[in-house]
Design a protein around this nucleic acid. Structure first.
Lengths: 220, 220
DNA sequence: TTTAAAATAGAACAATTGTTCTTCTGTTAT
DNA sequence: ATAACAGAAGAACAATTGTTCTATTTTAAA
């Protein structure tokens, strides 16, 4: 007995899945059995139900019984393509780096949001955005007005770019962080520049830099 | 990119919008009036209908009459406006800057694509992406590995960042371009650095820089 | 206070819609 | 041929669900 590995979609069922996908994209909600019926030129609702049952058994869709339009496409359309990242503040040389508090995560608040494709965050949680104020991050190759995608972590691996708060200097900076014996090396992203060495007690990791987005507008 | 959240919503209607959002994310299809009723602790379906009608009039949702679960959230989760930008090559100091040829625009070809939210391109046509090779663009605050979003134009306004090919030097560079009498001023994005002046005959504008995207991965 | 508008309640109706039942048509393998 | 099975067709049923109606309460304005 040969067992089918990845179930191949018959022409009719592929048509049905495509129709559902287009319907959801177009209307914003899934189709009914009868929508599929007319949309795919099928004569009876029972035929649609038959194919839907097969599709569910094969794992292509998920159905909620007794629920109208209770069809969810699995696999492709199910994964969120866009992410709303809250812009919780700005980062400047002489100001403390904003850190997401639980209140700040209320997506219904009046906050601004940065829309990015999900591949930038790569599914990471606790991602937020900061707007760069001033040119103090030039040595991190980050300009005034740039948006920095951050992940809220307290420790980073060696070599990762992090938002660092230097307690003594009361200074915020973005540097690659290397833990070394007895000291911390802060390496500018610009490899032509020299590293800075600081006391481990003096550094506070505020977050990991995930990405930098710079939009060029027409200059004023 | 930056999107203001919705205007003032009454507590109840904010709760309803949030419920719809969570419901859709969780189940994959919109809720019924009665789902909202129980989910938001509302006593009557007519009250839900009342609020939904207000929400639609205010533009927060779209409803299809007579359609079960015919609710579509507008604004945030609704329209994932994504754009596929072809990555047509890389830009390095000593190599000619790739320009999009008509063949390169075949979206079915085996080319790589960069997915960005539509607000980055802002509806512009002829947008493509280049990957930065090497650190020669450091003075433009652009690092090795960065992705540069370009628009294929032959002329740019004063002060716009452009991909410039210097014929004599056989050199590619990204600079702010200023037309001056008898000469062209190429100003690095890093305002701390000095401009370069070149003969107008020596410059070829290959495209306008729309955005820079830098992804930080874990270092090797 | 008085009044208008907004919001809430409860119920009933009518349309939509998922499901099931039976029968029928092909195809494929034994 | 005949059995087994995927697929299709049509009808009917029952549940789900959008909508409307009227009445009442709360809120905001004059």
């Amino acid at each position: 007995m040969v067992k089918k590995m990845m179930a191949q979609l018959s022409a009719k069922r592929k048509q049905i899945v495509d129709f559902i996908l287009r319907f959801v994209e177009d209307k914003g909600y899934p189709p009914t059995v009868r929508d599929i019926q007319s949309g795919c030129g099928i004569s009876s609702t029972s035929v649609v139900d038959y194919h839907l049952k097969v599709l569910e058994k094969e794992g292509h869709i998920r159905r909620d019984p007794e629920v109208s339009r209770g069809i969810e496409l699995l696999g492709r359309a199910s994964s969120p393509l866009k992410v709303q990242v809250p812009i919780i503040g700005q980062i400047a040389a002489g100001e403390p780096i904003p850190v997401p508090g639980s209140e700040s995560w209320d997506t219904t608040a009046g906050a601004d949001f940065l829309e990015v494709t999900a591949d930038l965050t790569r599914g990471r949680q606790d991602v937020y955005a900061l707007k760069i104020k001033g040119v103090s991050m030039i040595d991190a190759l980050i300009n005034d007005g740039d948006m920095v995608l951050m992940q809220h972590v307290n420790t980073v691996d060696n070599g990762e770019m992090a938002a660092v708060w230097l307690k003594a200097e009361k200074e915020a900076t973005l540097k690659k962080v290397y833990m070394e014996p007895e000291r911390v090396r802060l390496q500018p992203a610009n490899s032509q520049m020299q590293p800075v060495y600081v006391d481990p007690e003096n550094v506070e990791i505020q977050g990991r830099v995930i990405a930098v987005i710079r939009r060029m507008g027409k200059p004023a």
